[in-house]
């Protein structure tokens, strides 16, 4: 920095004193570096968000991702098992630090009840896909049906032109089915649902939160 050292006694403001004080002890540096690495590595996170069922919230929630330049991979919105509460399941690639920031900024929206972030280890994941494949190719090539069976997918409709196949599972299984059918050259259409999931936790965070809030309401 061209302007360095014009303020204090030393030429590299602050730095020398930091070293003298011995605050940069090796072990703690390594520990911190490891944590930083975890915090800064990009991976797929799943955000589970509960909100009141009010119009306009979805765009406010997605805007939080856009503003922080995080791309949404999948998004699923539906009424939840808690009456009046909507559930959003959103996946996105980002760092842990970013994921935590995003949840806090989403939770700050007035009508959002709760926002939490999970890695794949913390949740049981499901996703559905539908494939439209060519009936003539399916009849001609026995491998097509074999692949469908191998992937435990079912055929839900067949006519002379196409067959519709449905598969439910984790993302990698679905992609594997798609890849193998694509190699066989029979895929006409492929759609995925985006993921839904439930947590592996023993506690239900939303219920706890709502009970807690109810207590506060009654205390008023």
């Amino acid at each position: 920095m061209a302007f360095g050292g014009q303020c204090g006694e030393c030429t590299e403001c602050g730095k020398c004193e930091r070293l003298l004080n011995g605050q940069t002890n090796d072990d703690s540096i390594k520990k911190e570096e490891k944590k930083m690495e975890q915090d800064n590595s990009v991976r797929l996170y799943t955000f589970i968000i509960y909100s009141e069922n009010v119009p306009g919230l979805l765009s406010q929630i997605t805007a939080v991702y856009t503003r922080r330049q995080v791309n949404i991979e999948s998004l699923n919105v539906c009424a939840s098992s808690t009456p009046g509460a909507h559930k959003y399941t959103i996946t996105a690639y980002c760092t842990r630090t970013m994921a935590e920031m995003l949840t806090k900024q989403i939770e700050k929206k007035i009508d959002v009840l709760q926002a939490n972030v999970f890695t794949d280890d913390d949740i049981f994941i499901n996703e559905t896909c539908l494939l439209k494949i060519s009936t003539p190719i399916m009849l001609e090539n026995k491998d097509v049906c074999r692949m469908v069976r191998l992937h435990q997918a079912h055929i839900v409709e067949v006519n002379s032109i196409y067959a519709t196949i449905e598969k439910t599972g984790i993302t990698s299984d679905i992609l594997s089915l798609y890849d193998s059918l694509k190699t066989l050259g029979c895929v006409l259409q492929f759609v995925r649902s985006g993921r839904i999931c439930i947590t592996k936790d023993y506690t239900e965070h939303l219920d706890e939160y709502l009970a807690d809030r109810e207590k506060k309401r009654n205390a008023k």
Binding site: M1, F3, Q6, C13
Partner: peptide, 12 residues
């Protein structure tokens, strides 16, 4: 403190 500079590097 010039933009981007360290907080203790003030130009007087």
């Amino acid at each position: 403190v010039p933009p981007g500079a360290n907080i203790d590097e003030m130009i007087l």
